[in-house]
Amino acid sequence: MIHPIESAQSGRFGFLDLDAVYVADGAGNVLECLCDDGDAAESLAGGVPIAGVTEVGLPASDVLALVEWLESAVGLSAWGSPSESFAWVGDRGARFVVLPAGSEWYPTEQVADSEPMGATVVNDEATPGTYEHPELPYEITVLEE
């Protein structure tokens, strides 16, 4: 079950021409749903459906090591320039946000912890299958389109 984030329900990313709606899962992980057509407020109010979760955060003690696993084992690609403090892995339509464990989930003050996370992605460039991280509680399933 997901529910709106009290302190930050929506926001605007002008450099991406997108609105964002923030929700939390049952464990308190912050999920970001991006809306291309400026309908974040209506989506949150139930007026316009959103396409789905666009970003899923994956906290890690070593950001670059998790990015390497997502690229080499799962077959996804980093987007932009990964650093020790932040990385996007995936594409503009759907991606993982890899950030240091213990940092805050933007735009909230909630601490990002490595909670069990399962995600299914559709990606024609990656090999279909289910991938379990050897140390972190993350399971990624890749499907072909």
Rank of each mutant, 00 (worst) to 15 (best):
M1D: 15
I2N: 12
P4E: 04
I5R: 02
Q9G: 15
S10V: 02
G11I: 01
F13S: 15
F15R: 14
L18E: 09
D19E: 15
A20W: 06
V21K: 02
V21N: 03
V23S: 14
A24Q: 11
A27M: 13
G28Y: 01
E32P: 11
D37K: 15
D37V: 08
G38N: 14
D39C: 11
E42C: 13
S43F: 04
A45I: 00
G47F: 06
P49D: 12
I50A: 13
V53P: 13
E55M: 13
E55I: 09
G57Q: 09
L58R: 07
L58P: 12
P59Q: 09
A65D: 14
A65Q: 13
L66H: 09
E68I: 01
L70Q: 07
G75Y: 00
L76E: 00
S77H: 14
S77G: 13
G80P: 13
S81I: 04
S81W: 00
A87L: 05
W88K: 11
V89N: 03
D91E: 15
D91P: 11
D91W: 05
R92E: 12
F96K: 06
V97E: 05
P100S: 10
P100R: 05
S103T: 13
T108M: 04
E109K: 07
Q110L: 08
A112Q: 05
E115C: 06
P116F: 06
M117V: 12
M117L: 09
G118A: 08
T120R: 09
V121H: 01
V122L: 04
D124P: 04
D124I: 00
E125T: 05
T127M: 01
P128T: 01
P128L: 01
T130I: 01
Y131G: 10
H133I: 00
E135P: 10
E135W: 06
L136Y: 02
L136A: 06
V142C: 03
L143F: 02
E145P: 10
E145K: 05
